[in-house]
């Protein structure tokens, strides 16, 4: 069985799917990614599907599951590079890809993850008050 390689780039895991995956390969990728997230402590996963000429319900479900698993493991998943014909077909198939973040390309995906982490960091140190500091008289 073929396995999809997972690259670590800084704080991000990059998966670029280059083959027409069998269902077994898709399931293995799901498991490999979960392990790598934990082993590396990465907080972002980018799945590049530029090379995929179809996404059916099995791969669609795999993408949703990866997004859910990574969220539980404190990582953000962004799917990038979906072809227009694939997007049109997904909608007609009835697949909603709920809960999956998407971006145009890898670069935008990285920006999205960075912005998300930044936002979370501010939330952590937020004391709960939304009041702007005002100069006392």
């Amino acid at each position: 069985m073929e396995r999809v390689p997972i690259l670590k780039i800084g704080d991000i895991l990059l998966v670029s799917i280059q083959v027409d995956m069998s269902d077994q390969t898709a399931v293995a990728l799901q498991e490999d990614l979960a392990e790598r997230i934990v082993a590396t402590g990465c907080h972002g996963v980018i799945i590049d599907i530029t090379a995929l000429d179809i996404v059916d319900s099995f791969v669609g479900r795999m993408l949703s599951t990866i997004a859910s698993i990574s969220r539980v493991l404190d990582a953000e998943t962004v799917v990038v590079g979906m072809r227009p014909a694939v997007a049109i077909t997904l909608v007609e198939l009835g697949l909603s890809l709920n809960g999956i973040r998407t971006a145009l390309n890898v670069e935008r995906g990285m920006e999205l993850i960075a912005a998300e982490r930044d936002h979370d960091r501010h939330d952590e140190f937020d004391d709960g008050s939304d009041v702007e500091p005002t100069a006392s008289p």
Binding site: D56, S57, F58, P84, T89, E92, L93
Partner: peptide
């Protein structure tokens, strides 16, 4: 067309599975 190719390949993938 490219979109119709994508649709029929996707349908075939579902039914073959």
């Amino acid at each position: 067309s490219l979109v119709d190719q994508t649709k029929v390949v996707t349908a075939a993938s579902e039914l073959a599975r």
